[in-house]
Design a protein around this nucleic acid. Structure first.
Lengths: 338, 338
DNA sequence: GCAACGCGTGTAAACGTTTACAGCGTTATG
DNA sequence: CATAACGCTGTAAACGTTTACACGCGTTGC
């Protein structure tokens, strides 16, 4: 390459990167040679020399469902806009997996976005080599840059909405106890109940695991209560959908006999009948902000103390609580293979 | 690191990689030192030296929807099992974007999985530096390793199913003309019609773009026909869902007045009422096989000629065509934040 | 006419690995 | 007992960049 242009490698580097002085004619020769040879600099070598990779890692607990897909998308577009690449890695159910993956990231990435709602981040990082820029996503860890969802506020909004509709007994289907999102939603539910003069009783809280099946089962439990709750708030939409089917099979009309609300606003929420009242979260934004924070931390290496961001959520009222104004169906964006 | 263990870098390398002879005592010293220092080899340097990165790229046209998420997941688990990392990059609507991203992959990956149902792969690759192992996914390109879906067979199965139910006029809502999947599905529809003594008329084929909106609009067109089709086959589920809403608003019962079928079996297909008869595709398998083929091509550098694989599809019969035996609802896996 | 300066370029070191090769004990072999 | 063979380890080159530094040369300012 350098030979082809008749200059030294140093000049090639300067020309291609547009740094340092290089005469116009020389510049042109280099560019021309690069084009002819379809030359692309070897990024491994570059990153060895500059100690920077222009790549960031995104470590996810799982890869199922549209939620993660959206996080990835948000991070990807943000990263590309800044000229960064994205390494993703999913399915890290256990600590060892996660440690292994993170170690393998050394020399591969400039920083890490770590989504770990279940595992304690501190324990993982203690195993790791020196400080690599890091931002946690939806984790409960303190002391790192982080971006989280306002689970607490979203849950309160749901309960307030139900209270406003006259409900006094609201059943709650919870998520996995160790899950950070789940426990914040539970906290929101509890505090709201106290405030809203809603009945607050342990038997109204039944555990689930964020799966549709568990929502179905939990609903059966709630229906067996006496007195029955007049509304059910599931800690995520998947469980709410499970609940919907359970109610349907039990011959309970929604929302006439019992109101139902979820959390997340997954696409399916607007396709079930009745359409689900839920809490919407700008999921892609989660990925986007995570990247922005990470980039900030990469560029201003630990200058300021780690910022924490919380993404607001908002209640989206559909028919499943009996308070919808409009029945216009919401279109989603393109789906399927495209 | 080498100093800490009191040996040379060469020995460290040998010990850590388990290659070459190294005395037991030395080995232990190295391992111990590595543990103390939390040493992890710098993969940039390694890849410079070995000319291999243990990373593969996955380039997608878009990142919306569960389809891509599943492809990523399939590729990710396959890759990790073999000790590979995955760089993903989405949203490459146009040629220049794609070329830029692929060039930037040089020195970063050992090979590329390229999903490009719309763009001609040949044109893109001509711009690129020397042969990098490559497998295309759902592309129409010949001459590369590739894995595709049996769109043709799936479409034929749908039409045959409809014919078996007595339909003679089947409307077809097509996808983007440039899209490889879409055109194969169209081909399957046409050939099946010819074979099954179904009316084959241009007016029964209306164009769409894989979006829900276009399915809605296309259905309005089909309903205006005289005579009307007795069944509608949409080239993907998103359009089928759009069609469903159009039919519902037009007061047409599904399947009593008109039958409806889709393609892809996206999760929503089983949540709409009536549940959608469609063609299911093992999407994660698509990603998995793409990686396996790529790995093969990386390891046996061009020894054999590029294999082509086609993933079979299968008809899943639900209620929207009026032929369902069971109404048991299908549960999906965990969704939402987990 | 000479010093100082700036521009454009080359030289070489550095980044952190892998690996061919050499060296050097130790042991087996003739 | 000399020597070959082997096991273990260090030396150094190579991978492809970036970048501090030096150098030559034309300007400019005195």
């Amino acid at each position: 390459m350098a030979a082809r242009a008749g200059v030294s490698v140093a000049t090639v580097s300067r020309a291609l990167n547009g740094v340092g002085p290089v005469r116009r004619a020389t510049y042109d020769r280099v560019i021309e040679a690069a084009r002819e040879l379809r030359f692309v600099p070897h990024s491994g070598a570059r990153s060895l020399s500059t100690r920077t990779t222009h790549t960031v890692g995104l470590v996810l607990p799982d890869l199922h469902g549209e939620f993660f897909s959206e996080v990835i998308r948000g991070a990807d577009v943000a990263a590309r806009r800044r000229g960064y690449h994205l390494i993703v890695s999913g399915s890290h159910n256990n600590r060892d997996d996660m440690v292994a993956v993170i170690r393998a990231m050394r020399g591969r990435v400039d920083g890490l976005m770590l989504m770990s709602p279940e595992l304690a981040v501190e324990g993982i990082l203690s195993e790791l080599p020196g400080a690599m820029p890091l931002v946690t996503v939806n984790a409960r860890a303190k002391g790192f840059s982080s971006v989280t969802i306002d689970n607490y506020g979203g849950a309160r909004a749901v309960v307030a909405h139900l209270a406003g509709l006259g409900h006094r007994r609201v059943g709650f289907i919870g998520g996995p106890p160790a899950n950070a999102d789940a426990s914040e939603r539970l906290r929101g539910y509890r505090e709201s109940c106290a405030k809203e003069t809603i009945v607050c009783s342990p038997e109204l809280e039944v555990p689930g695991d964020f799966s549709e099946e568990s929502g179905y089962a939990a609903t059966l439990q709630l229906l067996a209560l006496d007195p029955r709750p007049t509304a059910i708030f599931a800690a995520n939409d998947a469980m709410a959908v499970g609940a919907l089917f359970a109610l349907r099979e039990a011959g309970q009309g929604v929302p006439e006999d019992i109101a139902l609300a979820g959390f997340d606003d997954i696409p399916i929420a607007r396709y079930v009948t009745p359409r689900l009242t839920t809490v919407t979260v700008a999921i892609a934004e989660l990925g986007r902000r995570a990247f922005e924070l990470l980039l900030d931390s990469i560029e201003h290496k630990g200058s300021r103390r780690p910022p924490r961001e919380t993404l607001t959520t908002s209640l989206v009222i559909r028919e499943s609580c009996g308070a919808s104004q409009s029945a216009a169906r919401g279109l989603t964006r393109k789906g399927g293979i495209s």
